[in-house]
Design a protein around this nucleic acid. Structure first.
Lengths: 201, 201
DNA sequence: AATGTAGTATGACAATTGTCATCAATACGG
DNA sequence: CCGTATTGATGACAATTGTCATACTACATT
């Protein structure tokens, strides 16, 4: 019997998926959490489930952060992540953190169940199409460029970004300018949009 | 027996919710569609289900557009919409189109099922908290301001927005400036974010 | 006809943003 | 120590953006 922890912020979806999985004879949903923090708490107070099935985009703590925690605390669970959009950046980061599976929410439920079984059997599951997408994706942005871009995308102006990052205004403009040109964007808004869509920020 | 059509773009979620509903004795899921267009096609070739349970944000055709179609074609189904975020703008538009229920994906599955039953019993279901939110929401933006803002949020610069809307650059800047001040934003990026978050664009 | 009012345009000006060349400080491998 | 990246800063300049006052049209109201 395979034990599972389901982590997903939208409770409707969480309940539905948990229900779906528990209809399988070999699967046993041991817990449901609404975000990473809650999952960590669960893991501290319960035996590690065979599978942690988690959404990526969640408030408080993302699925990626959860995977990092699991790896760094040597928890024996296999992490399988679900995501709405195929953002290449996510996939790369996930792989480097030892995530065992990657399922798009566009996939159908049979695929999810098959993936879980495969992961239990020792495989790493990721659709070829996602893998390829992740391969030819090389994020050209530096740390600083990303953080400046992120703040800019929230509507902050250069001055505020500068003080948030403890940099001079000029430097911030340089970073943003670099980012814009690297991404072939026309301005910071455009650059932020492009980066976001790739999962880079 | 209540018949239901489930419309949701993420097939994993769609399958899971359909499964959840079909576990209820009184509910019978007659069909599943991945977006509005498909739903319309379904409706043309099948008897109208009692309930159309649809996500709002979908590619091709949104749940709101689907509701408009249902109303204008005098289809006898009750529309219940699901949404991830409580955007006041959505709720208002939905109500004016005769949508019978509004459920947040943050709600739990029992609530969804109870809502469906209530709608069948003739009620209009919307949580008070959402209703209040919709009430004190009055979108201050004009049509033009919204469209200019939308284009700006996609990274277009004033010049391009102007030609897209067949206006002069100056006028576009005026609109944007108006929008920025109406929304108490610091720049167009900020303004677009605020409007988006309210469901205004 | 006179008035009011959207909707659009202009022009002028200030502030912010984008680009670029250059420079200083620090760190790192030889 | 010496080169050489790396990271951050400056200053200058051009382009874009934001603000405002003003004006013109068409259209509806009086």
């Amino acid at each position: 019997m395979t034990t599972i922890l389901v982590v997903e912020d939208q409770s409707l979806v969480r309940d539905a998926i948990a229900m779906l999985l528990s209809l399988e004879d070999e699967l046993d949903v041991k817990g449901k959490c609404s975000h990473g923090q809650e999952a960590i708490h669960f893991l501290e107070n319960n035996p590690a489930p065979d599978i942690i099935l988690s959404d990526i985009e969640m408030p408080q703590m993302s699925g990626l952060d959860l995977a990092v925690h699991v790896a760094s605390h040597h928890i024996a669970s296999h992490v399988v992540l679900m995501t709405t959009f195929a953002k290449p950046g996510y996939i790369k980061r996930a792989m480097s953190v030892g995530v065992k599976g990657f399922v798009l929410k566009e996939a159908d439920s049979d695929y999810l169940i098959a993936s879980i079984k495969d992961v239990i059997a020792g495989k790493v599951v990721i659709s070829t199409e996602l893998a390829l997408m992740a391969l030819d994706d090389n994020n050209p942005l530096s740390e600083k460029e990303m953080s400046a871009l992120k703040l800019a995308s929230e509507g902050m102006k250069t001055h505020d970004i500068a003080s948030a990052l403890f940099l001079s205004e000029g430097t911030v403009r340089n970073y943003l300018s670099e980012a814009i040109s690297k991404l072939n964007a026309t301005n910071r808004i455009d650059a932020a949009r492009i980066a976001q869509q790739k999962g880079w920020l």
